[in-house]
Every structure is written in structure tokens, then in C-alpha cells.
């Protein structure tokens, strides 16, 4: 039981990494990061169920709060960059390059 859930979590995490490293659309990259956070959440919940303690649930709630904060900030940055450059390509967003 636990192995199936954890392997699903690994698969979702690897799909998230794939989305981050292969796509250039900034929205897809951002949603892939959300997918990786979800995979980590699934692992927390599975271990919490196995050990029958609810600390993993609390950690999953913390991860959700961090994801919400990240979504707010990242979308604000995306709106600013889209206003500035008019594009959604991550290759264009090299503003900090020296």
C-alpha cells in the first residue's frame, strides 16, 4: 500500500521536474512547481497515515500556505514581466543578466 502511494508521489515529482526543465512557457513552469509541491504533500500524508501520527497533516497545511504565498508573488512578477516585455517566454526574462 505505502509503496504504491510513494511511487505515485515520485512519478508526479519527476513529471514536475520535466515540466520545469523542458518547457519555456512561464505559466507551465510555475504550474509544474505547484505539481512538485503536491507530490511532496502526498508523501507527507502517506507517511502520516503509516505512522498514525498527524504531524504530516500539519506539515501539508504549511506547504499549502507556502504554495499560496508563492502563487501570489509569482503571479505578480509574471504580470509585471508581461507588462514590461509583452512575452511569456522564460528565455526573454533575463533581466538580471550582467
Amino acid at each position: 500500500m505505502i509503496h504504491d502511494y510513494l511511487i505515485l508521489s515520485v512519478i508526479l515529482f519527476c513529471l514536475g521536474i520535466l515540466g520545469v526543465i523542458t518547457r519555456r512557457n512561464v505559466f507551465t513552469v510555475f504550474m509544474s512547481i505547484e505539481l512538485m509541491l503536491n507530490a511532496a504533500n502526498l508523501a507527507f500524508i502517506v507517511f502520516s497515515r503509516v505512522h498514525e501520527s498527524m504531524d504530516g497533516h500539519v506539515l501539508a497545511m504549511m506547504v499549502m500556505a507556502v504554495a499560496a504565498a508563492e502563487a501570489a508573488l509569482a503571479l505578480a512578477v509574471v504580470i509585471l514581466l508581461h507588462k514590461h516585455k509583452g512575452k511569456l517566454d522564460t528565455n526573454v526574462f533575463s533581466l538580471l543578466k550582467g
Binding site: F30, N41, L42, H57, A60, M64, A67, A68, A71
Partner: peptide, 29 residues
């Protein structure tokens, strides 16, 4: 994933996943 949380008997996280993730964050995106 919310359904999987319900299978793992994490009731609060199931509800939070539906409301916060599938509801709030995704509707924001």
C-alpha cells in the same frame, strides 16, 4: 489527489486540497 487524501483518511487535508488548491490557487492562476 484530493481523492487520494480521502483514501488515506486525511479528512481535513482532503477538504483543504479541494478548497485551497483546486479552488483558490488554481482559480487565481
Amino acid at each position: 489527489l484530493a481523492g487520494l487524501y480521502a483514501l488515506l483518511s486525511a479528512k481535513l487535508i482532503f477538504v483543504l486540497q479541494l478548497i485551497v488548491y483546486a479552488g483558490a490557487i488554481m482559480s487565481l492562476i
